[in-house]
């Protein structure tokens, strides 16, 4: 049986590349590992939109998902598969910290690995970035790759 599951959060940044290295190394040590690589498009159901934005929302969503797969997820999946890892990819809309944790719980993953972003805006300084919020609320151990 596949024993360990690891949820990996990707965002296409430099840190993501280091995350992939760490994941590959860890997977080799553990041996039988299933990797769930996840890209989250930040989105809130409580934001305000114009009627015109609402009308094309479904189309935009499809485009966003296709883009995320093409630019971030697929290259990452290829890299991990080439390294001989058992990996599946997901693109989701919502709050990254929430979603990574939920996937980890639903899948029974043993840990979450994400990268730390260097550039932090004002909002992130006040409310904490994805990594900060994930650490605060996560149900499973979290590894932050610097």
């Amino acid at each position: 049986m596949s024993g360990t599951k690891i949820v990996v959060g990707l965002d296409g940044s430099e840190a993501s590349k280091r995350v992939l290295d760490v994941v590959t190394r860890q997977a080799r040590i553990i041996g039988d590992v299933e990797i769930i690589a996840c890209y989250v498009i930040e989105w809130s159901p409580f934001s305000f939109q114009t009627a015109e934005e609402n009308e094309v929302r479904h189309k935009r969503r499809e485009e966003e998902i296709a883009q995320a797969r093409e630019r971030v997820l697929d290259p990452a999946l290829k890299q991990m598969r080439d390294a001989g890892l058992n990996v599946q990819g997901r693109v989701r809309h919502g709050d990254a910290a929430d979603i990574l944790d939920r996937i980890a719980v639903d899948e029974g993953a043993s840990q979450i690995i994400i990268g730390r972003l260097g550039n932090r805006g004002l909002v992130e300084r006040i409310f904490g970035g994805v990594s900060g919020r994930l650490i605060a609320a996560s149900s499973v151990p979290v590894t932050i790759v610097p």
């Binding site: 159901p45 479904h58 969503r61």
Partner: peptide, 25 residues
């Protein structure tokens, strides 16, 4: 509040957004 919203539909127009858009009119 989104209690009945399927998480797999996240990213689509939510009930809240449709209500807010209509209210602004």
């Amino acid at each position: 509040k989104g209690d009945y919203s399927d998480p797999d539909d996240a990213g689509e127009v939510s009930h809240f957004q449709a209500l807010a858009t209509a209210l602004s009119g």
